[in-house]
Design a protein around this nucleic acid. Structure first.
Lengths: 223, 223
DNA sequence: TTCTTTATTTATCATTTGATAATCTAATAA
DNA sequence: TTATTAGATTATCAAATGATAAATAAAGAA
């Protein structure tokens, strides 16, 4: 308050350092488009930021480029490469690995902005989703399938390639997890207070069920 | 082709029977808004129908009222009351009941229009979703919880009310089921060819897992 | 045929929207 | 103080949008 420099870089409306102003615009744009969708107007966005609409065009040549920047902000490096090693790490039980992975993953993606922009983009058919879902398949679904093969004393994927039915089956686990986020951030239902417990329940149920049903599923996949 | 009456009631653009024209508008509006979202323009909709844009306003006083009609068309009576009796019918095993319910339910809601308009509405915060999700809770989640209590030789909901943790848990089963539709109709991923088999796998896995984890979950819910 | 009715189109309006140009003004340097 | 730079606003445009009014034309009645 008494520091004039602080005022200079945070005051709304007037003469801000370009770096700070741009960051401010991006930050607010992320929130604005997450709430109203990518068709939201630049005027209302500007009002939310506390600037005039043409000022947006000093920082971004078009609305499209601003949205592109929003995608960068929300999705780039949203897959943390340290997660890669969690699921395949056989030094501990698969259940523990999945607990850890999905809890850490939840901390990143159980997020208003992340979920809503992802769904908005999906409905619009933006390619961002395809790219991201390919990562999910490669880094989550296929590793989980592989580990389930190991647990079930079944051939490795090298000997017997993963079938679509198996992948589809493991999408079930992921669906338990991610549909919770959709219920909350898209439908507006309340989120369970103990999220970690709910995640553990998903995993417990799926893994216990997997043991009992794996052979049936793989047999059907082959036949 | 040779029947002049047929031409009269299906030709695009000119002098159609009002009932038919209205039906045509609604049918196309459902498809159009499912694809482009509820913010789609009336002009593009009119072009898709093959009529001029002002003609829409002879049949509907406003865009809003047309969308209201679309909601009616898509959601009213989308919960078939005959489903009510499937899950509680103890004359057959729960697994068979769930197979039947979810397969019949899939025939209704694994549908481009249904899923997309539901998600569009959810993002927009329309109350339709809340009302529908309340039905899911009452007609699916709570009955499934109740039946799982019976199978587990646990107190009925009258003696021991259903906890939020239990409901949350059973949302997992529903999430397996419905996230498949989201993957396909929102993200555009291919849908497994054998949908019935995939649904059975969901149910098999959840029920087998339920047996193994139910007590843990209920204990945690109480403590 | 002519008249009447009304489904449909053409013309148009007021707002909103993405975008640009011109103007203003705060900060710094000379 | 004055001049210069550049961040920000005001004014404005062209296209798109929801909506209305007037004009057109197809079908049946007289």
């Amino acid at each position: 308050m008494s520091d004039p420099k602080r005022k200079k870089t945070t005051a709304r409306g007037k003469r801000m350092d370009p770096k700070d102003r741009e960051a401010m615009i991006v930050k607010e744009a992320v929130l604005y488009f997450a709430e109203h969708g990518l068709e939201g107007s630049t005027r209302k966005l500007a009002r939310q930021i506390g600037i005039t609409q043409p000022l947006l065009y000093r920082y971004f040549p078009s609305k499209e480029s601003l949205i592109e920047r929003v995608y960068q902000e929300v999705y780039v490096q949203r897959w943390n490469s340290k997660w890669d090693s969690l699921i395949p790490d056989r030094s501990q039980p698969l259940k523990q690995r999945l607990y850890r992975f999905y809890k850490e993953y939840a901390a990143a993606v159980y997020d208003y902005v992340w979920v809503r922009i992802f769904v908005f983009s999906g409905l619009k058919g933006v390619d961002i989703n395809d790219r991201y879902l390919a990562i999910i398949r490669e880094k989550v679904l296929e590793p989980v399938c592989t580990e389930l093969r190991v647990i079930g004393n079944l051939p490795t994927p090298e000997k017997e390639p993963l079938s679509e039915a198996e992948i589809e089956w493991v999408w079930g686990l992921h669906g338990m997890f991610f549909y919770r986020a959709i219920r909350h951030f898209v439908y507006g239902l309340p989120m369970d207070t103990d999220i970690d417990a709910a995640i553990e329940n998903d995993i417990d149920t799926f893994l216990a069920g997997a043991k009992a049903t794996q052979k049936k599923i793989l047999k059907k996949a082959k036949g």
